[in-house]
Nucleic acid binder design. Sequence first.
DNA 1: CATATACCTCTAGTTTTTCTAGATGTCGTT
DNA 2: AACGACATCTAGAAAAACTAGAGGTATATG
Lengths: 123, 123
Amino acid sequence: MRLPPTTRTKDNDVGKQQPDMIRGTLDMLVLKVLSLEPLHGWGICERVKLISEDELQVNQGSLYPALHKLTQEGWIKSYWGLTENNRKARYYRLTRAGLKQLNVEAAHWDRLATAVARVMATS
Amino acid sequence: MRLPPTTRTKDNDVGKQQPDMIRGTLDMLVLKVLSLEPLHGWGICERVKLISEDELQVNQGSLYPALHKLTQEGWIKSYWGLTENNRKARYYRLTRAGLKQLNVEAAHWDRLATAVARVMATS
DNA sequence: CATATACCTCTAGTTTTTCTAGATGTCGTT
DNA sequence: AACGACATCTAGAAAAACTAGAGGTATATG
């Protein structure tokens, strides 16, 4: 059973709800977990959630388009396989170009996150 | 003189250009610098650039709409003043609600950035 | 057997946020 | 007068992610 969408009114509005992801990090995160081992889409969601200790939530609706884009770019490749649960699933693995891209994105993230931290630490 | 927009072709394409901001951090960054002292729009751009040591680049086209939104939300208030250069400029200062919001956003950023770091550090 | 549930993939349409590419105007200097 | 640095602002496009589903399979449960 699907829960009805939460309706917010002036009275029960708890304020802006923050997103569960930092925009712009999805590709990098996907490349990263795939650099550890090939996974299928569902598994990627679980893995990110697990490693991030439930702080990061990858939506299916964001993930699959992203996976297709990464495939287009040549950074990952997919193949059909069977899961531990005996279901067929499309597995993704990082390509050599993908590993390079991961390094580029990680370095860029680091620079910007450090810069944000510097601003936020100013007194 | 305005420089022509850089045209990229197959041959000189250097790859995806990374954005100069982490999406979702603009509001927080603006609230933060305004928590240090009131500033006008132009000054906010300069200040962020300065503190971040040129890593973060706030575009005017992003900034002013953001300032208007923050004003709408009641997190900042504006007033006309004179700059050191004797030009009139709209200054923005943080409200009490804005300070609260800054704390909320900073805490949220911290959690997510930490989570991203944890994923990126996994081996 | 029937049905439910967890697993798994995928997409259309919308929203949010930022960027591009300007227009407009002022002050001080040459 | 003309220019460059300073300063505000907006329309429209683009990028990325979210909402809200549809669809399908294997296994467990009534």
